[in-house]
Design a binder for these strands. Structure first.
Lengths: 192, 192
DNA sequence: AAATTACGTTGACATTTGTCAATGAAAACG
DNA sequence: CGTTTTCATTGACAAATGTCAACGTAATTT
């Protein structure tokens, strides 16, 4: 249990066995069936979720009713509505499972206590959020500087497993395109 | 000197006088004239810059030669090519001054030493990067869910000072629009 | 195994945005 | 103060993307 969680944690910040045992007392396992919600907009995000197994997506609903996916998460990844988690404000995003999934949850109070007790946890957080920030920055830059074809080609190269496990219309949503436009972009790539 | 820097720092993480004096030994002041580069793409970003006075922009060059502004910074804000700073890789972005500016620089080695010596610095970083991440996430979501008119209206409400101090074509660039499209969006807003 | 649902592709057409160029006003420069 | 540069707006036209609908295939459900 929590194998992958600690493997990923240790990749960023090495833990002693005692530290791992301590952190374990703050973790909660959770299973989700495909299509089951982890979080609905308007509720407060009570936990940060780490994916031990499975696949999830985080999305908001645009004014026209369309879903806009802001993030995917597969094994080894973390997912939450971070603003809601940190502030206790109602969540903007929905999170649901695209495949049957097994998660490791860390609650707000556990998060706060670990911040007090374990400096390594703060380092881990800083590194996690920094990585997430840099990925988002790169993504926003590419939206404004690259064509859909270039962006899709980059995406399949960077995240081949996401392309395999999520339907194409979700990839399109994540890229801010309609399924039709992505289909046309893929056609253009093939003809080159 | 460094007044605003420590005011902002203390808003996030309160420092003792001794701690402030210690941090001061790691800071370097720098002045920039309008249009002067702080960082050019291809160079390594050697410092994180805090703005004591003035205004800067960070931008990349798209394949078609257009500038795409990813970030502005005015008094109290921080600016850098963070990936380049952390990894020593060549910078993707350019940073230059839109107004004559006074900065407070923190070098990579100072950053690393402060991380070792002062746990409060790590907390400050975590909080800084978390805020930056949340702002970027919100921005990317709005790109895909709101019209240019709505986005501009939000932007002027959230950042009135940016709208006053940066020319409109730079605001357009930051929004991922051409100046013409932003002008049309503003006309639409006025006719409502 | 049959029925149903989900998915990806495609084309016609509508809408939005970018490109180009011109104009006038404001700001900056000498 | 005169000259030059920068900026914002506008319109015509081109290009890109969204919307709608239909179709065939694959996956899921019954």
């Amino acid at each position: 249990m929590y194998e992958l969680f600690f493997r990923k944690f240790n990749e960023k910040v090495p833990l002693t066995h005692e530290e791992e045992e301590m952190i374990k007392t703050y973790l909660t396992p959770k299973k989700l069936r495909r299509k089951q919600y982890l979080l609905q907009e308007g509720d407060v995000c009570k936990s940060i979720a780490f994916v031990e197994k499975g696949a999830l997506r985080e999305y908001s609903i645009a004014e026209n009713g369309n879903e806009q996916i802001i993030q995917f998460a597969i094994e080894g990844w973390t997912i939450s509505d971070l603003y809601s988690f940190l502030t206790g404000e109602p969540a903007t995003y929905n999170i649901d499972a695209v495949e049957d999934s097994e998660l490791v949850l860390l609650s707000k109070s556990a998060h706060e206590e670990l911040l007090r007790k374990l400096p390594k946890y703060e380092t881990y957080l800083r590194l996690q959020v920094t990585g997430a920030y840099l990925a988002l920055q790169k993504r926003l830059t590419s939206v404004n500087t690259l064509s859909p074809e270039e962006r899709y080609a980059n995406f399949t190269q960077l995240y081949p497993e996401l392309v395999q496990r999520f339907p194409q219309h979700m990839i399109a949503s994540h890229m801010g395109l309609t399924p039709e436009t992505l289909s046309r972009a893929r056609r253009k790539i093939k003809s080159k």
